[in-house]
Design a protein around this nucleic acid. Structure first.
Lengths: 181, 181
DNA sequence: CTTACTTTGTGCATGTTGTCTCAACGATGT
DNA sequence: ACATCGTTGAGACAACATGCACAAAGTAAG
């Protein structure tokens, strides 16, 4: 596969593809292109997705459920090993093979099950506290759905997903294009 | 509120705040700073979020449900005026005040209800077809949760949300920091 | 009115990112 | 063996974003 083909596939330019890849090493053969299978494998290793990760889900609401049932998660190596919620009615009930735990036992469960990643699917006002506790418990990274900027040490990466902001970005783009016309 | 305060709030620098705002006009007063309320209002207008948008939800699965029930949506002016699904068992049943429609009447409903934005919460293999039909029906923008790159004309903005990629980005960052140490 | 103080908006320097171009290199065919 | 073709990897260059510094402008106080 040539950089040209890869570029078409990824909506970019051939030069960009080559330059990006060259940051990590030399994967292609001149005159031939890149061997797709090998390249994939190398990239998986580089990105750290050539293994499975142990994930805890905090928040057993609608978003939590959607994530938990999302098949692509498990198939890409993200194993949900714990679910937490603060609602006493939910604690003890089970989703699939996981029973929902109280936040009272957060630290204990996190350590016992060797959780590496935490997904925060809880309201904004509870997110910071849980995030801090997760960092304290030695979590490696946080995927945050709450609409606030978490205050955590720089060593702990945070990825934010803000659904309303995605819609607002759309609104802005639409407005822009209408004005251009 | 000074640019300094705004910067602290938004995790950036005062100069950055001023420069970004200056792209859109002159909002502050020298010696005084920015008047928060006025600034918010101006930005809302600039971003096109000073009005409400009519949204159709395609896909009445877990993710669709999570979005539909997400209170921040409605409160920010995104009104869900239609829900579509291909599952015959779901068609006709209701969520809240919306009854789920068949994709057979997609074009008709889209026009009747004046849908402006479409949210695709369906599997990847169905997403392209619905996207094309939505464009044909004159939609203004698409929020896409399916893990594929939609092929649509440049006039129609698309925002992609790929949850697995977010986790993979986390994995990469974690790997990077571990190597640095 | 004048002076001291605060804060914006912008020109300038610097660093980062994307694009273009081309020599180096491997494969293929004569 | 040799020339030709296709493609990479890297250096040069242009575009863009970021950070700094300061004049302009407004406030407040004597």
């Amino acid at each position: 596969m040539s950089s040209e083909e890869l570029a078409a596939w990824g909506q970019t330019t051939a030069a960009q593809v080559r330059k990006d890849l060259s940051h990590f090493g030399s994967f292609g053969k001149r005159g031939l292109g890149y061997q797709a299978g090998e390249l994939c494998e190398s990239l998986r290793t580089l990105l750290g997705i050539d293994r499975s990760w142990k994930v805890a889900l905090v928040g057993a609401g609608r978003i939590g459920l959607a994530l938990y049932e999302y098949p692509a998660f498990r198939s890409r190596g993200y194993d949900c090993v714990a679910i937490f919620d603060s609602d006493p009615e939910k604690i003890g009930t089970a989703w699939g093979d996981q029973s929902i735990c109280s936040l009272d036992v957060f630290e204990k469960v996190m350590e016992e099950r060797g959780v590496e990643l935490v997904i925060l699917a809880i309201p904004a006002d509870a997110a910071q506290e849980v995030a801090s506790r997760a960092v304290e418990a030695g979590v490696n990274g946080i995927l945050n759905f709450a609409p606030i900027r978490l205050n955590v040490p720089a060593e702990v990466p945070v990825e934010d997903v803000n659904l309303v902001m995605e819609l607002e970005a759309l609104s802005f783009q639409i407005k822009q294009r209408k004005q251009d016309v």
